[in-house]
Design a protein around this nucleic acid. Structure first.
Lengths: 137, 137
DNA sequence: AAAGTTCATGCAACCAAGTTGCAAAGTTAC
DNA sequence: GTAACTTTGCAACTTGGTTGCATGAACTTT
């Protein structure tokens, strides 16, 4: 079932302002995760801080998740509708060293690890680096 | 077989200067990974840039590896003697959200993942966040 | 509908981590 | 000893992220 933008926002208890709808629209159009700087370039007029806070609001309300792919700039991507960002909801990310795009491998859950005794798990991040299928051609 | 510092440096083709020996000594004394800023605090007189370049030299020659634990500052830890930083050599890292220390779980190799077709693997990073055994007590 | 409250936005300025350029000091080769 | 190269130290800069504060929009209360 497709969701219109306002539903997506309302479902996550985010007040749907014009700005937020615009940002959400850009996010839904991405096939790879996007950084704050890249997001900024998509707008001619918007302020970096506003976009930053918009992303933060989205993240706090689990509409998007952030990915630290090791490039020095955090990337953001939409969560699936049912995502609660629990360890079970997490998936592997892939960073292409050629095109520098960061992919959500939504179909690849993070494999479980057996931690040493008395280590307590809260979350896991797994980033694979290599060449993506586009660049491989 | 224990290695003296100069051997460790020579084995990795790093010219053993006084500075490098001091940095290596500090690194061998750590039980958890250390950031550039933390390393700087271990010295009263050393320059941040020199330490930065020393770490970079060490990393390029695979004496140490860097860990991006998502805190915004990269951590460094000694490699095992045989490490070539290939995917097979990599281990899981653990970041404690209480004491903010980053552990090398040398005994826990990164589980393999089946990438989508035509995705090519170069390296993987896996960081688990939670509470370490020390803080759990 | 005016006044008050709350939340969102925009600008300026700041901060931390990492990085570069260059000159001085040290080391090695001849 | 001098030339060539490497390492170190200082200054200064870049980038990404973040805070403070004032303005502006929206919503409430009367």
């Amino acid at each position: 079932m497709a969701q219109n933008p306002d539903n997506l926002l309302n479902n996550r208890n985010i007040k749907p302002t014009a700005m937020r709808e615009l940002v959400l629209k850009v996010l839904t159009e991405q096939t790879t995760a996007i950084s704050l700087a890249e997001l900024e370039h998509k707008f001619h007029k918007a302020d970096k801080v506003t976009l930053f806070r918009t992303l933060k609001t989205f993240e706090e309300n689990k509409l998007i998740h952030s990915i630290d792919d090791g490039t020095g700039s955090v990337k953001y991507a939409l969560c699936t509708e049912s995502c609660q960002c629990n360890p079970d909801d997490l998936h592997v990310h892939f960073f292409c060293t050629l095109c520098h795009h960061t992919f959500c491998l939504n179909d690849i859950p993070i494999p479980s690890v057996n931690l040493p005794v008395h280590f307590n798990l809260e979350s896991i991040s797994m980033v694979v680096k290599g060449i993506c299928s586009n660049c491989k051609k």
